[in-house]
Design a protein around this nucleic acid. Structure first.
Length: 301
DNA sequence: AGAGTAGCCTGTAAGC
DNA sequence: TGCTTACAGGCTACTC
Protein backbone atom coordinates (compact mmCIF):
# COMPACT_ATOMS: atom_id res chain seq x y z
CA UNK A 1 0.00 0.00 0.00
CA UNK A 2 1.52 3.25 -1.04
CA UNK A 3 2.54 5.40 1.89
CA UNK A 4 5.14 8.15 2.05
CA UNK A 5 8.17 5.98 1.10
CA UNK A 6 6.37 4.38 -1.83
CA UNK A 7 5.22 7.73 -3.19
CA UNK A 8 8.64 9.28 -2.66
CA UNK A 9 10.34 6.44 -4.53
CA UNK A 10 8.06 6.95 -7.51
CA UNK A 11 8.58 10.71 -7.34
CA UNK A 12 12.35 10.32 -7.54
CA UNK A 13 12.17 7.81 -10.37
CA UNK A 14 9.82 9.99 -12.37
CA UNK A 15 11.84 13.12 -11.71
CA UNK A 16 14.79 11.50 -13.45
CA UNK A 17 12.66 10.53 -16.45
CA UNK A 18 9.90 13.00 -17.23
CA UNK A 19 11.06 16.50 -16.32
CA UNK A 20 10.92 18.58 -19.50
CA UNK A 21 8.72 16.07 -21.31
CA UNK A 22 5.53 17.21 -22.97
CA UNK A 23 2.33 15.18 -22.62
CA UNK A 24 1.19 14.34 -26.17
CA UNK A 25 -1.82 12.16 -25.44
CA UNK A 26 -4.16 11.33 -22.60
CA UNK A 27 -6.57 8.47 -22.02
CA UNK A 28 -8.82 7.92 -19.02
CA UNK A 29 -10.96 4.79 -18.99
CA UNK A 30 -14.68 5.18 -18.54
CA UNK A 31 -14.59 2.29 -16.07
CA UNK A 32 -12.76 4.56 -13.62
CA UNK A 33 -15.45 7.20 -13.04
CA UNK A 34 -13.95 8.40 -9.75
CA UNK A 35 -10.37 8.74 -10.95
CA UNK A 36 -10.55 12.36 -12.11
CA UNK A 37 -11.95 14.69 -9.46
CA UNK A 38 -13.81 18.00 -9.90
CA UNK A 39 -13.82 18.02 -13.71
CA UNK A 40 -14.81 15.60 -16.46
CA UNK A 41 -12.22 13.22 -17.79
CA UNK A 42 -12.64 14.82 -21.21
CA UNK A 43 -11.81 18.22 -19.79
CA UNK A 44 -8.95 16.74 -17.80
CA UNK A 45 -7.38 15.16 -20.88
CA UNK A 46 -7.92 18.26 -22.98
CA UNK A 47 -6.16 20.42 -20.40
CA UNK A 48 -3.31 17.99 -19.83
CA UNK A 49 -2.46 17.35 -23.48
CA UNK A 50 0.27 19.67 -24.72
CA UNK A 51 1.51 20.58 -21.26
CA UNK A 52 5.15 20.18 -20.30
CA UNK A 53 6.16 18.67 -16.96
CA UNK A 54 8.38 21.10 -15.07
CA UNK A 55 8.59 19.57 -11.61
CA UNK A 56 7.69 16.69 -9.34
CA UNK A 57 6.90 17.16 -5.69
CA UNK A 58 5.42 15.09 -2.89
CA UNK A 59 3.29 16.09 0.07
CA UNK A 60 2.33 13.25 2.40
CA UNK A 61 1.03 10.54 0.11
CA UNK A 62 0.19 12.99 -2.70
CA UNK A 63 2.33 13.18 -5.81
CA UNK A 64 2.31 16.62 -7.44
CA UNK A 65 3.25 17.03 -11.10
CA UNK A 66 3.93 20.68 -11.85
CA UNK A 67 3.00 21.81 -15.37
CA UNK A 68 4.24 24.65 -17.54
CA UNK A 69 0.90 26.48 -17.33
CA UNK A 70 1.41 26.73 -13.57
CA UNK A 71 -1.26 24.22 -12.90
CA UNK A 72 -0.67 21.07 -10.87
CA UNK A 73 -1.57 17.50 -11.72
CA UNK A 74 -2.12 15.93 -8.31
CA UNK A 75 -2.16 12.15 -7.93
CA UNK A 76 -3.13 10.03 -4.92
CA UNK A 77 -2.47 6.29 -5.27
CA UNK A 78 -4.63 5.29 -2.29
CA UNK A 79 -4.70 1.49 -2.11
CA UNK A 80 -3.61 -0.02 -5.37
CA UNK A 81 -2.66 2.80 -7.73
CA UNK A 82 0.65 2.45 -9.55
CA UNK A 83 2.41 4.64 -12.11
CA UNK A 84 4.40 2.74 -14.70
CA UNK A 85 6.96 4.21 -17.10
CA UNK A 86 6.68 2.18 -20.30
CA UNK A 87 7.16 2.27 -24.02
CA UNK A 88 4.13 1.62 -26.22
CA UNK A 89 5.76 -1.63 -27.35
CA UNK A 90 5.93 -3.00 -23.81
CA UNK A 91 3.46 -5.80 -23.03
CA UNK A 92 0.10 -4.61 -21.72
CA UNK A 93 -0.27 -4.17 -17.98
CA UNK A 94 -3.25 -5.34 -15.97
CA UNK A 95 -5.76 -2.84 -14.63
CA UNK A 96 -4.67 0.15 -16.72
CA UNK A 97 -7.23 2.90 -16.02
CA UNK A 98 -5.38 5.77 -17.68
CA UNK A 99 -2.34 6.40 -19.85
CA UNK A 100 -0.33 9.43 -20.89
CA UNK A 101 1.93 9.63 -23.94
CA UNK A 102 5.15 11.63 -23.76
CA UNK A 103 7.00 13.46 -26.52
CA UNK A 104 10.03 11.16 -26.27
CA UNK A 105 7.90 8.17 -27.23
CA UNK A 106 7.54 6.82 -23.71
CA UNK A 107 4.27 6.60 -21.82
CA UNK A 108 2.97 6.67 -18.27
CA UNK A 109 0.41 4.02 -17.41
CA UNK A 110 -1.88 4.37 -14.42
CA UNK A 111 -2.91 0.95 -13.10
CA UNK A 112 -5.32 0.59 -10.20
CA UNK A 113 -6.97 -2.70 -9.36
CA UNK A 114 -9.38 -1.29 -6.80
CA UNK A 115 -10.01 2.05 -8.46
CA UNK A 116 -9.63 4.05 -5.26
CA UNK A 117 -6.95 6.27 -6.76
CA UNK A 118 -7.71 9.91 -7.55
CA UNK A 119 -6.28 12.70 -9.67
CA UNK A 120 -6.90 16.42 -9.80
CA UNK A 121 -5.89 19.17 -12.19
CA UNK A 122 -5.85 22.36 -10.17
CA UNK A 123 -4.40 25.88 -10.07
CA UNK A 124 -2.92 25.31 -6.65
CA UNK A 125 -2.03 21.88 -5.32
CA UNK A 126 -2.53 22.93 -1.74
CA UNK A 127 -6.29 23.19 -2.31
CA UNK A 128 -6.62 19.39 -2.27
CA UNK A 129 -4.37 18.87 0.74
CA UNK A 130 -5.10 21.81 3.00
CA UNK A 131 -5.54 19.87 6.19
CA UNK A 132 -2.38 17.79 6.02
CA UNK A 133 -0.09 17.77 9.03
CA UNK A 134 3.67 18.34 8.89
CA UNK A 135 6.05 16.39 6.67
CA UNK A 136 7.66 13.82 8.95
CA UNK A 137 11.05 13.96 7.24
CA UNK A 138 11.33 17.75 7.35
CA UNK A 139 12.98 19.74 10.14
CA UNK A 140 9.60 21.20 11.14
CA UNK A 141 8.63 17.79 12.49
CA UNK A 142 9.88 17.40 16.05
CA UNK A 143 8.80 15.42 19.12
CA UNK A 144 7.35 18.63 20.56
CA UNK A 145 5.33 19.31 17.41
CA UNK A 146 4.04 15.75 17.38
CA UNK A 147 3.05 15.91 21.02
CA UNK A 148 1.33 19.27 20.59
CA UNK A 149 -0.75 17.98 17.69
CA UNK A 150 -1.88 15.00 19.77
CA UNK A 151 -3.03 17.05 22.71
CA UNK A 152 -6.59 16.30 23.83
CA UNK A 153 -6.75 13.26 21.61
CA UNK A 154 -7.78 10.19 23.57
CA UNK A 155 -7.74 7.85 20.58
CA UNK A 156 -5.21 5.00 20.41
CA UNK A 157 -1.78 6.20 19.34
CA UNK A 158 -1.92 3.91 16.32
CA UNK A 159 -5.08 5.66 15.11
CA UNK A 160 -3.46 9.03 15.71
CA UNK A 161 -0.48 8.12 13.53
CA UNK A 162 -2.85 7.27 10.69
CA UNK A 163 -4.55 10.68 10.97
CA UNK A 164 -3.09 12.67 8.08
CA UNK A 165 -3.93 15.97 9.77
CA UNK A 166 -1.58 15.08 12.63
CA UNK A 167 1.36 14.03 10.50
CA UNK A 168 1.33 13.39 6.75
CA UNK A 169 2.32 10.21 4.98
CA UNK A 170 2.05 7.41 7.55
CA UNK A 171 -0.19 4.44 6.78
CA UNK A 172 -0.81 1.11 8.41
CA UNK A 173 2.55 -0.43 7.61
CA UNK A 174 4.82 2.42 8.71
CA UNK A 175 2.53 3.08 11.68
CA UNK A 176 3.18 -0.42 13.00
CA UNK A 177 6.90 -0.05 12.25
CA UNK A 178 7.21 3.28 14.06
CA UNK A 179 5.44 1.92 17.15
CA UNK A 180 7.70 -1.14 17.19
CA UNK A 181 10.86 0.95 17.00
CA UNK A 182 9.50 3.26 19.70
CA UNK A 183 8.36 0.33 21.86
CA UNK A 184 4.94 1.89 22.27
CA UNK A 185 1.78 -0.23 22.36
CA UNK A 186 -0.72 0.65 19.57
CA UNK A 187 -3.63 0.98 22.04
CA UNK A 188 -1.95 3.55 24.30
CA UNK A 189 -4.23 6.60 24.42
CA UNK A 190 -2.41 9.37 22.58
CA UNK A 191 -2.88 11.89 25.37
CA UNK A 192 -1.32 9.50 27.90
CA UNK A 193 2.08 9.29 26.23
CA UNK A 194 5.02 10.69 28.21
CA UNK A 195 7.61 13.08 26.76
CA UNK A 196 10.08 10.24 26.39
CA UNK A 197 7.45 8.19 24.54
CA UNK A 198 7.05 11.07 22.10
CA UNK A 199 10.80 11.29 21.58
CA UNK A 200 11.07 7.58 20.84
CA UNK A 201 8.00 7.69 18.61
CA UNK A 202 9.37 10.61 16.63
CA UNK A 203 12.63 8.72 16.16
CA UNK A 204 10.71 5.58 15.21
CA UNK A 205 8.63 7.37 12.59
CA UNK A 206 11.68 8.90 10.94
CA UNK A 207 13.61 5.64 11.03
CA UNK A 208 10.77 3.54 9.60
CA UNK A 209 10.16 6.01 6.76
CA UNK A 210 13.85 6.41 5.92
CA UNK A 211 14.35 2.64 5.80
CA UNK A 212 11.33 2.37 3.53
CA UNK A 213 12.72 4.94 1.11
CA UNK A 214 16.16 3.34 1.14
CA UNK A 215 14.55 0.02 0.20
CA UNK A 216 12.49 1.63 -2.59
CA UNK A 217 9.26 0.94 -0.74
CA UNK A 218 7.43 -2.05 0.67
CA UNK A 219 5.70 -4.62 -1.53
CA UNK A 220 4.11 -6.89 1.02
CA UNK A 221 0.60 -7.72 -0.03
CA UNK A 222 -0.21 -10.65 -2.25
CA UNK A 223 1.81 -10.01 -5.39
CA UNK A 224 -0.14 -8.17 -8.08
CA UNK A 225 -1.99 -5.65 -5.97
CA UNK A 226 1.21 -4.46 -4.29
CA UNK A 227 3.11 -1.28 -4.60
CA UNK A 228 5.36 -1.46 -7.62
CA UNK A 229 7.79 1.16 -8.86
CA UNK A 230 7.75 2.92 -12.21
CA UNK A 231 9.78 0.09 -13.79
CA UNK A 232 7.18 -2.44 -12.62
CA UNK A 233 9.50 -3.96 -10.01
CA UNK A 234 8.62 -4.28 -6.32
CA UNK A 235 10.43 -2.52 -3.49
CA UNK A 236 12.66 -4.41 -1.10
CA UNK A 237 11.43 -3.20 2.27
CA UNK A 238 9.84 -6.56 3.04
CA UNK A 239 13.30 -7.65 4.16
CA UNK A 240 13.47 -4.70 6.58
CA UNK A 241 10.00 -4.74 8.12
CA UNK A 242 10.00 -5.45 11.85
CA UNK A 243 6.30 -5.56 12.76
CA UNK A 244 3.81 -5.27 9.92
CA UNK A 245 2.46 -8.66 8.89
CA UNK A 246 4.66 -10.55 11.37
CA UNK A 247 1.85 -11.89 13.56
CA UNK A 248 2.98 -15.12 15.24
CA UNK A 249 6.64 -14.62 14.35
CA UNK A 250 9.41 -13.86 16.85
CA UNK A 251 10.15 -10.24 17.72
CA UNK A 252 13.49 -9.13 16.28
CA UNK A 253 14.37 -7.59 19.65
CA UNK A 254 13.28 -10.18 22.23
CA UNK A 255 12.01 -13.23 20.28
CA UNK A 256 8.58 -13.03 21.91
CA UNK A 257 5.89 -14.00 19.41
CA UNK A 258 4.33 -10.96 17.80
CA UNK A 259 0.58 -10.40 18.17
CA UNK A 260 -2.12 -8.93 15.99
CA UNK A 261 -5.07 -6.84 17.14
CA UNK A 262 -7.59 -4.55 15.46
CA UNK A 263 -7.15 -0.86 16.23
CA UNK A 264 -9.52 1.61 14.65
CA UNK A 265 -10.67 -1.08 12.26
CA UNK A 266 -7.12 -1.67 11.08
CA UNK A 267 -4.83 -4.60 11.67
CA UNK A 268 -1.97 -3.86 14.06
CA UNK A 269 0.97 -6.13 14.84
CA UNK A 270 3.17 -5.51 17.87
CA UNK A 271 5.43 -7.25 20.37
CA UNK A 272 3.53 -7.91 23.62
CA UNK A 273 6.77 -7.75 25.62
CA UNK A 274 8.64 -4.80 24.08
CA UNK A 275 5.46 -2.76 23.61
CA UNK A 276 3.70 -3.09 26.98
CA UNK A 277 -0.07 -2.74 26.99
CA UNK A 278 -1.74 0.15 28.80
CA UNK A 279 -3.70 -0.79 31.90
CA UNK A 280 -7.07 -2.41 31.39
CA UNK A 281 -6.77 -3.38 27.76
CA UNK A 282 -6.92 -7.15 28.16
CA UNK A 283 -10.50 -7.28 26.90
CA UNK A 284 -9.66 -5.33 23.80
CA UNK A 285 -6.93 -7.70 22.81
CA UNK A 286 -9.09 -10.33 21.16
CA UNK A 287 -7.40 -11.56 18.03
CA UNK A 288 -9.83 -12.36 15.27
CA UNK A 289 -7.73 -14.70 13.24
CA UNK A 290 -4.27 -16.10 12.90
CA UNK A 291 -1.58 -14.80 10.62
CA UNK A 292 -1.92 -15.76 7.02
CA UNK A 293 1.85 -15.82 6.70
CA UNK A 294 1.65 -14.34 3.23
CA UNK A 295 2.27 -10.74 4.06
CA UNK A 296 5.97 -11.24 4.45
CA UNK A 297 6.69 -13.83 1.82
CA UNK A 298 10.31 -13.96 0.82
CA UNK A 299 11.11 -12.38 -2.53
CA UNK A 300 11.66 -14.83 -5.33
CA UNK A 301 15.22 -16.08 -5.48
C1' DA B 1 -15.51 18.73 18.38
C1' DG B 2 -13.92 14.19 18.94
C1' DA B 3 -14.67 9.31 18.24
C1' DG B 4 -16.24 5.46 15.76
C1' DT B 5 -17.53 3.15 11.56
C1' DA B 6 -19.72 2.09 6.81
C1' DG B 7 -18.59 2.38 2.24
C1' DC B 8 -15.84 2.58 -1.79
C1' DC B 9 -13.40 -1.56 -4.74
C1' DT B 10 -11.73 -6.32 -6.37
C1' DG B 11 -8.63 -10.34 -6.13
C1' DT B 12 -7.24 -13.83 -3.00
C1' DA B 13 -7.81 -17.36 0.17
C1' DA B 14 -9.99 -19.48 4.03
C1' DG B 15 -13.99 -22.02 5.35
C1' DC B 16 -17.97 -24.72 4.72
C1' DT C 1 -15.20 -29.17 -6.10
C1' DG C 2 -17.65 -25.02 -5.80
C1' DC C 3 -19.72 -21.43 -3.51
C1' DT C 4 -19.67 -17.85 0.18
C1' DT C 5 -17.43 -14.88 3.12
C1' DA C 6 -13.70 -12.31 5.17
C1' DC C 7 -9.85 -9.56 4.38
C1' DA C 8 -6.50 -6.07 2.65
C1' DG C 9 -6.62 -0.41 3.80
C1' DG C 10 -6.50 5.35 2.46
C1' DC C 11 -9.79 8.33 2.82
C1' DT C 12 -14.51 10.59 3.04
C1' DA C 13 -18.93 10.93 4.81
C1' DC C 14 -21.80 10.05 8.16
C1' DT C 15 -23.72 9.25 12.95
C1' DC C 16 -23.51 9.62 17.85
Amino acid sequence: MPELPEVETVRRDLEARVIGRTITSCFVSEDAPRLVQLITRESFCESLTGRTIVGLRRRGKYLIVDLDDERAWVIHRRMSGNILYRTPDDPPDEWVRASFGLDDGQELRWTDLRKFGTMWLVEDATMVMESLGPEPLEAEFTPVVLRARARKRSIPIKSLLLDQTVVAGIGNLYGDEALWYAQVHPLRPANKLKPDDWRRLHTGIVKALQLGIAARGSSLGSTLRDHINVDGNPGENQTTVRAYGRDGEPCYRCATLMRRIIVGGRSSVFCPKCQPAPRGTAKKMAVKRKSKGKLHAKPAA
